[in-house]
Computed example of a mutant assay.
Amino acid sequence: MATRLRVHSPAVLYFDAVRRAGSIREAARRLHVASSAVNRQILKLEDEIGAPLFERLPGGLKLTAAGEVFARHAIVVLQDAERARSELDALKGLRTGHVEVATVEGVTTDLLPTVISRLREDFPNITIGIATLGSQAIPDTVASGAADLGLAFALPRTAELRQLTLARFRLGAVVPPDHPLARRREVSVATCMAYPLVLAKQDLSVHHLMRPAMERAGADTRGVVRSGSVELSKELARRGIGVAFQTRIGLEADLNRGSLVHLPLNDAGPVYSDLGIYARAGRALPVAVDAFARLLGEEMARREAAEAAQLPVPS
């Protein structure tokens, strides 16, 4: 006869902390409890489940197959508990909560600060956590429960993520105003090849978006610099070291000052990069997370419309 599994919230909380930390001692430090208390909860869980949840390795703890299964349960339980708490607070008019966001670097220059400022005006009791990652790392971060929302360009579709909002922006060459290309309205990759290039490394979405056009043009994919940072690429373009490539997102201040020029790429047609907001599939969002996602989606739509209408960059 199958046994009935009864798991209490402290055990789930402690298990999730150990999963994230990779050690009982570090999990205990983060939880501000004794290591023995965490260890007891893990042993209790393993006894109740009837299988070890972690492999004890010299470098730390690693989830077993049973641990992977239980981790999916723990993520759902803890995120649903946060949603319930957020909704109860909303009923009381408190509008509290926390939102953890995994994001690409480019949106941290202007887009996210704008949205966070508006969130603080409307919901001053909501707190925000921001982790800056490469696009390729964001899906796992959201699916694992380490972040409530993911914000990234050109993410592939996956069953583990739900797309909340999508805005499309043109990819372009980025040059200083005195660059020979700066007076053009559009450029092709082949045209840019006549000048030194600052290219993105593979962990950035722009690398994958640019690769087909680069291969068709027969471009040297090494570039004078290959960078994993859009901020560094932007600075190198500003100093005239090479032509960089990105959307207008992240260039707002430079474009308004006139210190950089964004030239949309036309490679047998416009080249677009889709900026999306993502949450774990099947998750009902807490009030705080939903409020932040809505404000972010509205701002993305505003900037997408402004670009389509060729208006000045919103400020």
Rank of each mutant, 00 (worst) to 15 (best):
S35C: 09
E55C: 06
L133Y: 14
L112R: 10
T96C: 08
F70M: 05
R120G: 14
P124G: 08
V99P: 04
D110T: 11
F54Y: 11
T114F: 04
G106W: 07
R40E: 13
A102V: 02
E68H: 12
E55Q: 09
D122R: 15
G134W: 07
D89T: 10
K44H: 14
L119Y: 06
I138G: 12
A131C: 07
D122W: 10
D110S: 14
A65T: 11
V107T: 13
E55P: 01
D80F: 03
L53H: 06
A131E: 15
D80G: 12
R83C: 04
R95T: 06
A74F: 02
R95M: 13
Q79F: 04
G134T: 11
L88K: 11
R118P: 06
V69T: 09
F70N: 00
Q41L: 10
L31V: 05
L88Y: 04
V101D: 10
G93T: 00
E55A: 13
A74S: 15
T103K: 03
S135Q: 08
I49H: 05
A137N: 12
I42A: 05
D89N: 12
Q136N: 07
K62Y: 03
N39W: 05
A34W: 03
E55Y: 07
L112A: 13
K44Y: 05
R25L: 06
R95G: 05
E105T: 09
A137P: 07
A90E: 12
G134K: 08
R29L: 00
G129T: 04
A28E: 01
V101G: 04
T96Q: 13
H73R: 12
G93Q: 01
T141S: 14
E48P: 05
T109M: 11
I49V: 15
N39Y: 07
V104M: 02
P52K: 11
V99I: 09
V101H: 01
R85L: 09
A90T: 09
P124R: 04
D122T: 09
P139W: 03
I116K: 13
P124F: 06
L63D: 03
A81Q: 10
T127F: 04
E68S: 11
A74R: 00
P58R: 10
V107M: 14
V107A: 15
V77E: 15
Q41C: 15
G106A: 15
I75H: 06
D110P: 00
R95P: 00
G60K: 03
A71N: 14
